[in-house]
Amino acid sequence: MQRLMLKFLYVVAALKYSGIRRDLRYFIRDNYYSRLNQIRFVAKDYFTKGKYKVIDFHGEFDQELRYVLPFAYWHYLNGTLAKTISSTNTKAFYFFSENHSELYEKRLWQAGYDYYDVPNMTHSPSFSFTKWARVPLKSHYRNKQFVFRKPILVIANKYNVEWDKPPVNFLDIPDLDRIVSTHKLNYQIIYNRPLSSQIVVDNSEIMDLNEHGWLRENHPEVILMNDLYEQHHNAVDNFNHLQLLIYANCDRFISMHGGTAALASYFGGINIILSHTGGGMEHHFNEYDTIFPALSGAKILHAKSTDELFQYLSAYY
Rank of each mutant, 00 (worst) to 15 (best):
R40S: 07
F41I: 02
F41W: 12
V42E: 11
A43N: 03
A43F: 05
A43Y: 07
A43L: 02
K44P: 10
K44H: 12
K44M: 11
Y46E: 15
F47S: 03
F47M: 09
K49C: 00
K49W: 00
G50C: 04
G50D: 07
K51N: 10
K53G: 07
K53N: 14
K53W: 09
V54P: 03
D56Q: 04
F57A: 11
H58S: 14
H58Q: 13
H58A: 13
G59Y: 11
G59N: 13
E60M: 06
F61G: 05
D62M: 15
Q63E: 06
E64V: 01
E64L: 04
E64W: 06
L65Q: 07
L65P: 03
R66P: 03
R66W: 06
Y67R: 11
Y67I: 04
F71K: 00
W74Y: 15
W74A: 13
H75A: 03
Y76C: 01
Y76F: 12
L77Y: 14
N78I: 03
G79Q: 08
G79C: 08
G79W: 09
G79V: 06
L81K: 02
L81H: 02
L81E: 05
A82T: 04
A82E: 07
A82Q: 09
K83I: 05
K83P: 01
T84V: 12
I85L: 02
S86E: 06
S86F: 04
N89E: 12
K91E: 15
A92H: 03
Y94D: 05
Y94C: 06
F95E: 09
F95Q: 11
F96R: 01
